[in-house]
Amino acid sequence: MTAAAIERRPLRHLRARRLTILSALAVAVMVAVVLSLMVGARPVPPADVWQALWSPSGSEPDLIVRDLRVPRTALGVLAGLALGVAGALMQGHTRNPLADPGLLGVTQGAAFAMVLSIVVLRLSSVYGYIWFGLAGALIASAAVFALGLAGGRGAPTPVTLALAGTAVSAFLYALTSTVVLLDQQAMDMFRFWQAGSIAGRDSAVAGQVLPFVAVGLALALANAPGLNALALGEDVARALGRNIALTRFLGIAAITLLTGAAVAACGSLAFIGLIVPHLARALAGPDHRWLLPYSGLAGAALLPAADVAGRVVAHPGELEAGVVLALLGAPFFVALVRRTRSPRL
């Protein structure tokens, strides 16, 4: 062992450092929000944004900011927050660094329910099929949990959950593919949904998903200490007085609400939930009480930032945020895989 004496830092010092990082991430979210309000086909200077927000006069910049950019920015922050936290929860529960929030069939459940609602009910507004997307996410997740429960003893294990999630996702994807091949309108919606975007949504959409995200975040934070115990193995967690089944159930409920709300509103963006927790873990270490907030804020900064980038690179057109994230995320992911020490959770 090395002889170098490591200075024992008091816990207070560590706490100050963690709060500083938390503030820095909050600032990053704010910067992304401001950029998202300013940048676009028609740039709006900060002074005009300010005026549009607090004393609108009905001018063109006012309308652009209030009707187009505020809704997509709000949705981007909410969905990024939700997917960042859901991704960290999912990787913690499965102890798998490659797990994304869609692993439990949530994404495919939402997709199938939305496609079905278009074909059967001829719904045409995003406003309408978000509810179906949420319901589909909940049903798929419940089915996966039940299957995972049937396969194991007592509490579902990460392995049975991942297997059940993969099976249910593949099944639902097959159903969705069949339906969209037969129906042009469903195909159009599905193609747009699959790319993943926060643009062009009604201002009511953010309000619609807000309660689900709020409840999901509360459950996620309540889940953090349990996840810390579970990270030491199920036997140690039980020895420390944890109810394993309850901890897992809480976590899955939070993942379902957060991911279901985000993908129903913005489409298939689960990739952000795969990469953001890795960034957060580099800053927070393995303590989920800090990892979850870090991951949420990083997601809330990254998704609007990707959306802004999509407006800049394809100017005067736009590239969907989901496409930008995948383009930027893929190299990051390759770097992650190539890391000499594989991350153990």
């Binding site: 810390n228 990270a231 030491l232 020895a239 270490g285 393995p286 959770l345």
Partner: peptide, 29 residues
């Protein structure tokens, strides 16, 4: 858990966990 502690065989910790963090998790109950 406040009366009886159990240490299972060959337990595993997440990467990067410090000794102080691990020991602090013993305060869980």
């Amino acid at each position: 858990a406040k009366i009886l502690g159990v240490l299972p065989q060959a337990p595993a910790a997440p990467e990067g966990l410090t000794v102080a963090d691990l020991v602090a998790r013993g305060r869980h109950p």
